[in-house]
Amino acid sequence: MVTSFSVNGKEKTVQVDPQKPLLWVLREQLDLTGTKFGCGIAQCGACTVHIDGQAIRSCVTPIASVAGKAVTTIEGLKPESDEQHPLQQAWIEHQVPQCGYCQSGQLMSAAALLSENPNPNDADIDQAMKGNICRCGMYGRIREAIKAVAGSSVAEQFYDAMETNHG
């Protein structure tokens, strides 16, 4: 079956089994390998991407359900201008990643949180991030990095720009 959708602002058409999960279409058909496989049953969050701005687990999202929608992956998190997303900067500043394998998913979950709630408290952060496992255990650093961006003027400008670009 042919499915059309946009990925990081570009139109894509693939011919695959409609049940094939978005994760494997991204990785195998579209060569976007930044989105990771961790569990296959929406338990670990390594495969998190945005569909129309919402964080979802791509390992359990059939490609047919994505038709006509806008997908953003880690490769598209930063804007065209080539600057980093404020969260990516904070991730570097706080030296968050260890092995780094879960971090695409962590960043996508955190970005979705901040776009909806620019000033999350600890409970909001827990709620938004508890679907993302980090086996290296960098939760403290992830929390600090999110807080560093939350409510900052850099973030507000960034999200305003995102709205203009994608909205």
Binding site: T73, E75, L77, Q84, Q88, Q103, S104
Partner: peptide, 14 residues
């Protein structure tokens, strides 16, 4: 190694 681990460009065996 950290910059490549925040934008999906770090290459793992997978």
């Amino acid at each position: 190694d950290i910059p490549s681990k925040v934008d999906g460009s770090a290459q793992f065996a997978l």
